[in-house]
Computed example of a mutant assay.
Amino acid sequence: MNNIFKFFTPKDKKFQPLFEQAGSNVLKISEALFLALSTKDLEKRKEYIKEIERLEHVGDDITHSIFLELSKNFITPFDREDIHALASAVDDIADYIHASASNIELYNITNIGDAMIKLAELLVEMCTDLDKAIKELRSFKNIRVIADACVRINSGENQADYVCNIAIARLFEFETNAIELIKQKEVLQTLEMATDKCEDAANVLESILVKNA
């Protein structure tokens, strides 16, 4: 019956393009973050952080469009709750990346440690997988791509937890400046929260996969 229903359901021309825009945008944000943290040039870092802010606003507009379509359309490509949850999770990733970058600038953090760069690298990998998985929602022809991406995202989040915990432990062991410790810890935890939101998005994708594959 589910296959028959899909046959008669009009092809989605609204939600999928918006989700693909959101996936592509959050990948761009993660890449800009990695570049911002990797560069030693403080002026270039400011430029990348400004680009992150711009892309975060783009993501907000896409999320708003998804919610607007959700309020206007009775028939949706998959469960309304999953649409809302996936859009929210992707938006949250962008928000936490933006918060991390903004705090680095606001707190005037110039010493970017290896742990921050590693977390940014993991975010790029996770957002790459998220972008690939979202594209596969268009047809569900390659469900293995979605499933494998979700596994890698979950693994990435576990790695991020470890990297963050070790980095904070070392801060308490070696950082003698209490203010610097607080600033570094705040950024590390915000970056780690961005990876948590990647895992949230993967969990929604797995839910969609189970219901629709």
Results as ranks from 00 to 15, higher is better:
147 A>E: 13
140 F>R: 04
150 C>N: 09
163 V>P: 00
147 A>S: 13
161 D>K: 11
188 L>S: 09
174 F>M: 09
171 L>G: 15
132 K>V: 07
132 K>P: 02
140 F>N: 05
150 C>G: 06
181 L>N: 04
147 A>T: 06
161 D>I: 06
158 N>R: 12
158 N>S: 11
182 I>N: 09
159 Q>V: 00
141 K>F: 04
170 R>K: 15
173 E>G: 03
152 R>F: 02
150 C>Y: 01
140 F>G: 04
188 L>I: 12
136 E>A: 05
135 K>V: 05
165 N>T: 11
189 Q>G: 07
174 F>T: 14
136 E>S: 04
186 E>A: 09
169 A>D: 11
140 F>Y: 12
165 N>E: 14
156 G>A: 06
160 A>M: 06
159 Q>N: 11
174 F>R: 11
162 Y>D: 11
142 N>G: 04
170 R>H: 13
151 V>Q: 09
187 V>Q: 04
191 L>K: 06
182 I>F: 14
143 I>E: 08
180 E>Y: 11
185 K>C: 11
144 R>I: 06
156 G>C: 06
133 A>I: 04
192 E>N: 15
191 L>D: 03
161 D>M: 09
138 R>V: 03
161 D>C: 08
170 R>T: 03
137 L>C: 04
133 A>S: 14
170 R>A: 00
154 N>A: 11
184 Q>H: 13
186 E>F: 14
167 A>C: 09
165 N>P: 00
152 R>N: 11
177 N>A: 12
141 K>C: 00
134 I>G: 00
179 I>V: 15
177 N>M: 10
147 A>F: 07
160 A>C: 10
154 N>S: 11
146 I>P: 02
175 E>G: 08
137 L>Y: 02
141 K>P: 01
168 I>L: 06
160 A>T: 04
189 Q>A: 12
184 Q>A: 14
148 D>W: 01
168 I>Y: 02
136 E>M: 04
180 E>L: 13
175 E>R: 05
163 V>H: 00
190 T>W: 02
164 C>F: 02
146 I>R: 00
135 K>I: 05
191 L>A: 07
184 Q>G: 05
138 R>Q: 10
183 K>S: 08
137 L>I: 06
150 C>K: 01
181 L>C: 11
132 K>C: 06
181 L>K: 14
186 E>C: 03
190 T>H: 02
136 E>L: 02
188 L>P: 05
189 Q>M: 14
153 I>E: 01
167 A>Y: 06
168 I>M: 08
148 D>E: 15
149 A>W: 01
159 Q>Y: 09
179 I>Q: 12
153 I>Q: 02
157 E>I: 03
171 L>V: 13
134 I>K: 01
190 T>Y: 02
176 T>M: 10
187 V>I: 15
